[in-house]
């Protein structure tokens, strides 16, 4: 194998054969090294949350990845190709300049019995963000997610000082044995943790003076978005064998999983909260 090993000869066969072998070996080692070094670098630069979201987004079913401009009718069909991050999406910027959103007159919208106050912005993972007077953000679960999760067995809120990233983990909940992450709608640093009783979960100080919030849904988008979400939810309940569809016009129950114990809540919550 090596020139100093007994029996080695410098003939063309040996050179070609062993040359190919050592090249393959070098390529394999280099590939592994490169992947490892990049991974170490990712951990160092705290890219884990970003990578997790990218990977999760990739694995989401197409129905969960619809572009927000499909809700408003600007596209017949469009699947998001930017990981739900409209902040740097050229299509979004262009469409927003062409058709600015109508500012709604009413203070809240009720969709299928879910109350969606319009003084705030919504994230595709069913959290809302409200800008406070001091410039901080309050983050909470929207009416749908609150009822979906109901009374969780466990809530794990991040301590003050934790850095949140858009689409990264905001906090974790456990419900009926299913663990789900709630995605963060904004970038910032946690300054205070709340709880369900207070109606909000986190208060976050933005990192920049004028944070970019283009990824969030607002105003006239909310109603069509919720309608689509309900379609998705009904579809999930139907395939998960609950056998019951949501009644139109009725008031939704406070805790879905109690009302439909036969459904696979792990899957339903994962799909609805964008964690495949």
């Amino acid at each position: 194998m090596f020139p100093w090993v007994y029996g080695f000869t410098w003939d063309a066969g040996s050179i070609v054969f062993l040359g190919a072998f050592f090249t393959v070996l070098a390529v394999l080692v280099a590939t592994l090294m490169k992947a490892t070094l990049r991974a170490v670098n990712d951990v160092k630069l705290e890219r884990t949350e970003c990578i997790r979201w990218k990977s999760d987004f990739h694995d989401l079913p197409a129905a969960a990845k619809k572009c927000r401009h499909e809700f408003t009718g600007e596209f017949a069909h469009r699947t998001c190709d930017n990981n739900f991050d409209c902040r740097d999406c050229a299509t979004h910027a262009k469409l927003m300049s062409e058709h600015p959103l109508v500012v709604p007159e009413n203070a809240e919208d009720v969709v299928y019995g879910f109350t969606m106050p319009l003084d705030r912005m919504y994230h595709r993972g069913h959290t809302w963000v409200r800008r406070e007077e001091d410039g901080s953000f309050t983050i909470g679960l929207d009416d749908f997610a609150s009822r979906l999760i109901g009374v969780p067995e466990q809530i794990e809120l991040p301590p003050a000082g934790t850095r949140l990233r858009v689409n990264g983990t905001a906090w974790n909940v456990k419900k009926q044995g299913a663990a789900v992450r709630i995605l963060s709608p904004v970038e910032g640093e946690v300054i205070e943790a709340g709880d369900p009783q207070r109606g909000w979960f986190l208060r976050v100080k933005p990192l920049e003076e004028k944070p970019n919030l283009r990824n969030l849904l607002r105003g006239a988008e909310i109603r069509p978005w919720m309608l689509r979400e309900m379609e998705r939810f009904q579809g999930l309940l139907a395939t998960e064998g609950a056998g019951i569809a949501l009644a139109d016009g009725g008031v939704p129950v406070n805790d879905f999983s109690k009302a439909y114990p036969r459904a696979d809540w792990d899957t339903v919550m994962g799909e609805m909260l964008l964690e495949p």
């Binding site: 590939t31 992947a35 490892t36 991974a39 990712d42 951990v43 884990t48 990578i51």
Partner: peptide, 18 residues
């Protein structure tokens, strides 16, 4: 596990070499 997640991500990007 974060280290597993990022390693998978980075290795998968190089899978064409493999």
């Amino acid at each position: 596990i974060p280290s597993m997640l990022v390693f998978e991500h980075e290795l998968h990007k190089l899978v064409f070499v493999l």
